[in-house]
Write a protein that binds this DNA or RNA. Structure first.
Lengths: 197, 197
DNA sequence: GTCTATACTATGATAGAC
DNA sequence: GTCTATCATAGTATAGAC
């Protein structure tokens, strides 16, 4: 089913890699074009501007993120299981789309300046709500602590999970599912040694 | 003892704020100059280049970070206490120097391209070693779990701690010391409800 | 759909008057 | 120590030939 990559897709892919590696602002249209194998003027046949490329990368990415988070909310299971599933889902998407994940995590201030930021923001709000809904459910049913603000847990967890895209490498024996298990275990059970009494 | 701020310091401060807010690459020397209240050419009387400004901000910041981490290592106390102290120390520095902290966390790929990166890297290595030394000590004396790679804990913890500079606001009743306590408690004890048997 | 050529703007940095 | 004026370069984007 893998279609041969057309030029438009090649531009999106090359752009995402460069944006992730060097940042959006310091990536030039000439670099993107060189990576694709065309001259810079040709990019503007496919996209009206460099920012339009950024925006399409993010729109596609956030739509997929939303889709996967909704699937998690639809599963049976208690808050602990759902929170673990959310971590696993996030890390799997980061593995599947490392460039887009890195752009979204590193360049939020750039994205905010885009004229079209409103539509991205809508997705971002839903994503955050997914975490908070599950955390609140766990506080309500006694699975989670109530002495720490849910938003504080959410932010620590979000940064730890998503920023793993900066250091996690999928090659090697440490799989992304194992990483997700370890992450969930640290955040839910803690790193202090278990009492074995 | 607060000296009146001289122009050179004003340039450093204004640059740090702009770099933190918009990124180094998308901050122009003209913006910096306007913020200070001079024309762009005048900056080059104080610094040989824009990158030299970035570099000095980071050098000063990392020297202070190093100094504070060494003080933590010199304290008495078990690994748990020392790890908590490291978290508190980090969050206090992030509060005292939010701009430099944000630059260091967001612009590592830019910093790596600087010709002088070697001297920054030396400090960065020592900083990382401080975390790992304490974590290893806790594994050795039974305070911490041994079923999760110390480097994985370090990375989750580092990202959660330092990236709080993106969202934590020191105004309001939630103090940085309380934030540090909550962070330590989540990472060491976990967010799952305590067994109260 | 790509190329050539170029318009236009912005960038970091410099020289010399004050 | 700052300003004016300017340089050289590089940036995004466009127009029109092929």
């Amino acid at each position: 089913m893998a279609q041969p990559e057309n030029r438009r897709d090649a531009i999106l892919r090359a752009s995402a890699e460069l944006f992730a590696r060097q940042g959006v602002a310091s990536t030039t249209v000439r670099q993107i074009a060189a990576e694709v194998g065309v001259l810079s003027g040709s990019l503007f046949h496919h996209f009206p501007s460099k920012d339009a490329i950024v925006e399409e990368i993010m729109t596609v990415y956030l739509a997929e993120l939303r889709r996967r988070y909704r699937a998690v909310l639809d599963t049976e299971g208690g808050p602990r299981e759902q929170l673990e599933a959310l971590i696993t889902t996030s890390l799997r998407l980061a593995e599947a789309s490392p460039s887009a994940t890195m752009i979204y995590q590193n360049e939020l201030s750039y994205l905010r300046e885009l004229p079209q930021y409103g539509s991205l923001k809508e997705a971002a709000v839903e994503v955050q709500q997914t975490w908070l809904t599950i955390i609140e459910a766990g506080r309500a049913d006694g699975s989670f602590r109530t002495d720490i603000d849910p938003k504080v847990l959410y932010r620590f967890l979000r940064d730890a999970v998503w920023l793993s895209v900066r250091w996690y490498r999928p090659d090697g024996p440490y799989t992304v599912d194992q990483l997700a298990k370890d992450c969930a275990s640290i955040f839910l059970d803690g790193y202090a040694a278990f009492d074995t009494d």
